[in-house]
């Protein structure tokens, strides 16, 4: 790190950090909702990457990265709705959101 840190690198490092935090959360927490929170963080980190690359790309007018980010935000909203619906359905069935207890494949 000898002064060659460009703005883009900074954003990428932040995104990598956020992604890893999200991944760690998704892999280590026991509550299903917190796993979903971790996934949301990972998706957001990816969005940050897309926007950063769009901003520092040679042709930002093409809007490719921006469009990717917008579509990804929209898909993530749908993902959250379905995921949380599943969590509620599972809770209703098994009366827990603890993933350690939800390891059976049979209802």
């Amino acid at each position: 790190m000898t002064g060659i840190v460009t703005p883009l690198t900074g954003y990428l490092v932040v995104a990598a950090l956020l992604f890893s935090i999200g991944l760690a959360g998704a892999l280590t927490r026991r509550n299903a909702i917190l796993v979903l929170i971790g996934i949301e963080l990972m998706l957001n980190a990816a969005n940050l990457n897309l926007i950063a690359f769009w901003r520092y790309a040679p042709h930002p007018e093409a809007l490719t990265g921006m469009m990717f980010a917008i579509f990804s935000i929209a898909v993530a909203a749908g993902e959250a709705a379905v995921g949380l619906g599943l969590v509620i359905a599972i809770y209703r069935h098994a009366h827990t959101t603890d993933l350690d207890q939800l390891s059976r494949m049979k209802g």
Binding site: A16, L17, F19, L23, A24, A26, L27, T28, R30, D100
Partner: peptide, 16 residues
Amino acid sequence: FSRTWVTGLLIAAAVF
């Protein structure tokens, strides 16, 4: 944290 939290943390650290 779940029982396998060490593995998860290691994976996340490796990814980072």
